[in-house]
């Protein structure tokens, strides 16, 4: 019962903040709603016994990525906001229709095609940080190292791109 209540409240918050992110007029407000959304997703992870991921979500998304967005929104001090003047060739309404079509399609796939995958249910302890760590550093060691190289490359690339004189 409590689980269901938590899920419905969090789901409503996640979707509500998602709508606000997409519709907010000011980009700064949009960024803020994004933070709120990510915090709600982190709370959802806690209800799913994924505390480590919840904390990482807050630390990396809310504490790192979104701060970056906020910086860029503030640096890009717009004299003419992009949504003010309309491009006649732009088919925004068609975009919305297409997005709804994507949603219907996904929901249809979900309704028809989804069944619980076969496989033995493992044991996910209430405190599974060590298990996540073990998975990352043994079975998924090579993807993990690749991901760290990707981060390094992205970091160098971002510094190069953002530098003033090329």
């Amino acid at each position: 019962m409590a689980e269901a209540a938590a899920f419905y409240i969090l789901a409503a918050l996640i979707l509500g903040f998602g709508v606000l992110v997409v519709t907010a007029k000011s980009a700064v407000h949009s960024v803020l709603f994004l933070v709120a959304d990510f915090l709600c997703v982190a709370a959802l992870y806690v209800t799913l016994q994924a505390e480590f991921l919840a904390v990482i979500q807050v630390m990396v998304y809310a504490g790192g990525i979104v701060v970056l967005y906020l910086f860029v929104v503030m640096l890009v001090n717009l004299k003419r906001p992009p949504d003010a003047q309309r491009d006649p060739r732009r088919l925004g309404r068609l975009g919305a229709v297409l997005a709804v079509a994507v949603m219907v399609e996904l929901a249809a796939i979900l309704a028809v095609g989804w069944s619980r995958p076969e496989g033995e249910a493992g044991a996910l302890g209430p405190s599974n940080v060590a298990q996540v760590g073990r998975a990352l550093y043994t079975d998924y060691l090579i993807p993990f190292e690749l991901a760290s190289i990707l981060l390094l490359v992205a970091m160098i690339g971002a510094i190069l791109l953002a530098r003033r004189e090329m």
Partner: peptide, 20 residues
């Protein structure tokens, strides 16, 4: 069980008050 990481991640949130 992730107490220390919790402190770090909550600490990063304080920055929003300052920036905003």
């Amino acid at each position: 069980n992730v107490g220390l990481l919790y402190v770090v991640s909550v600490g990063t949130l304080g920055i929003y008050g300052i920036i905003l």
